[in-house]
Design a protein around this nucleic acid. Structure first.
Lengths: 231, 231
DNA sequence: TAGATTGTTAATCGATTAACAATC
DNA sequence: TAGATTGTTAATCGATTAACAATC
């Protein structure tokens, strides 16, 4: 922090920050850097070199330095990277510090699992509201204020959300997604298993799809077996 | 199927199948092709062109054709790709047809959610055994035979598993993973949140990490906001 | 200062795109 | 046959690697 300031003071603001394209591949790796750094903090590691960090991520030291260089000037020559500082900077890049607000839609067990998992704390997301399919009286004093879907309009008016974590049944997934967007939601974490089509291009969606890493696992098992069998 | 056979008959076996490197990027996309094709089957789509498939996946038609070409000869000129045939072939590549056997370790709610989600059916994985932390009498006649962790050795001897879905508490994650590997497990789907280090290189691991797509979501929200604010 | 490690450049490699010939 | 769409090649683009100078 004071390091960056010194550089700014010496050379003028942002002079050293590369204006090179934020490189798709590097961006895609940021969440994993963030996760690895979080574990390093837990392990009380204060300092890490591009060499070590690369090894933990399955990347070369060169690649780590190139990646980080795209986003700023985070290292110290002859020393490496301060774990906490880097973690914080990457968090800022990702938007962890922005205090985004989420509405949790649907009351599947997955919704509970995610809520209990700590990912909302880790990602800096504030869960502000829950909408359920059950037509019960609103429970605005529950740990997380809960309203039935029919009250979505007033509920979201009072507690606007940037993003939705969508666990609706697959039959109504698209319909619910469109309704949320029309109420101001700009991003959807889609846990319905159904691809969300027809949304405005400005709406960001990402799918919760655990079958993908599982299938990659199978692919490697399959390749290993073939490799062992053949030679 | 008979198409491939005809080609084989005409030009000799595997002649047309490219021996080009299976291209990391293309391999990484296979699970998503598989998922999209599965939805097309549900929607009763019989035939699809590289153009349409590309649009659904956010790729160009060229890219789709290049991707698929790495793995075989799946299309028909002038026609496109038969959805079911392509789905089946990609499934074979991924190992869905191999009938891999999984041991489910730990009884967190996430384990239940995954079990109920249908991903094991979709990926062709047979769940053969469950190991729990609870020291109860074995329940070998439950829908999924369940044994306490202490009985792991005999349980896995009787029902060997290729892979483990690991939902152990974070404190013991590494220890449990090593024990499983020593009992013959060759791949681990790691849902513990803890990075698994020190395992033999031959063991494949993939992490269940929903915070990564969530963080990518935030990143895009953040970039959008900045883009809108600046110009 | 000497040692370490980043930042940065240039070279290599791989992946994507575009265009078109092959063929269903 | 004519139309459509793949398979395939070559050109472009982007990402990774390697090497070293800058600097802490």
């Amino acid at each position: 922090m004071d390091r960056i300031d010194r550089i700014k003071g010496t050379f003028g603001a942002t002079k050293k920050v590369k204006k090179i394209p934020p490189s798709g591949a590097a961006v895609a790796r940021l969440p994993r850097y963030f996760r690895v750094l979080s574990h390093l903090i837990d392990a009380k590691v204060l300092r890490i070199s591009s060499e070590e960090l690369g090894e933990m991520m399955g990347l070369t030291a060169s690649q780590v330095r190139q990646d980080l260089r795209h986003f700023g000037d985070f290292g110290q020559q002859g020393y490496g990277y301060q774990v906490k500082f880097l973690y914080q900077k990457i968090g800022e890049l990702l938007g962890v510090a922005e205090g985004y607000r989420a509405v949790l839609v649907g009351d599947s067990p997955l919704q509970e699992v995610l809520l209990a998992s700590g990912i909302y704390r880790e990602t800096g997301i504030h869960c502000v509201l829950r909408l359920t399919a059950r037509e019960e009286a609103p429970q605005p004093n529950a740990p997380l204020p809960t309203f039935p879907w029919s009250a979505r309009e007033s509920a979201l008016a009072e507690r606007p959300a940037d993003l939705a974590v969508l666990c609706a049944p697959s039959g109504v997934a698209r319909e619910v997604a469109h309704a949320l967007v029309s109420l101001g939601v700009r991003a959807i974490f889609n846990c319905t298993g159904v691809p969300l089509t027809g949304l405005p291009a400005s709406v960001v969606t990402f799918d919760f799809a655990p079958e993908e890493p599982l299938l990659r696992l199978l692919y490697h098992l399959t390749q290993d077996t073939q490799t062992k069998d053949l030679p």
